[in-house]
Amino acid sequence: MTAVFYSQGQTPTPEWLLMQYAAGTLPPYESMLIAAYLALNSAAKQQLARFEAEGGRMLEESAPVKVTGACLNNILAIIEPAGVAARPHPAVHAAKASDCPLPEIMRRLLSTHCPQQKLAWRRLAPGIARIDIQLCRTEPRQRSLALVRVDAGRAAPSHRHQGVEMTLVLEGSYQDGSRSYGAGEMVILGRDSVPHSPSAGAEGCVCMVLTEGAVWLQNPVLRWLSAVMPR
């Protein structure tokens, strides 16, 4: 349906995703990721606005296609002279009363866009928990969107990915190799990337992670055991 770059062997960039978001062609999982990215990152908002302006210009330059007279007549019959706010805006779902600790942006996005979502952290290992986001039944298998919480000082077990992994930091920070990533930063790793073992910063870390394909633990037993031990 859309030109999903990475399914064809490429690694997308945040700009690429923003451009697709602006054009209205980004699939649901990525849209959720980008919606949170935009809420947390003002530079990304600016970039999106530039792409949208390009869309507006494209619109101005389009060769017009005849619209039937009925179309305008229908509209004129519907719009009220009073105009502004004539139609009530569909109610936004009230955030589910829940004692589940969640970043505010995710509480807002999930309650609006998938109110049926179960909000409960599932413990994977000491200090590591996950919520799988159930957005859309038609997502291909082997793709997952999840919130991942890693407590301060803990690390994900060393692993590598078959496909692309996109990570948006929602709260706190994490360290991967020599770099540290903070709230509002998005990291996109290409397929067949080298094994890594990101660890949470001093305040812990909550991320939204879109993963394609399998995730392979390096030496599963040993790596897992070492990873769940406090550092």
Binding site: P28, S31, A35, A91, T112, H113, C136
Partner: peptide, 14 residues
């Protein structure tokens, strides 16, 4: 999508 009509899914993401 496992959503009700008024859930406004993507429409509201943008």
């Amino acid at each position: 999508a496992p959503l009700e009509e008024d859930d406004q899914f993507l429409q509201n993401l943008a």
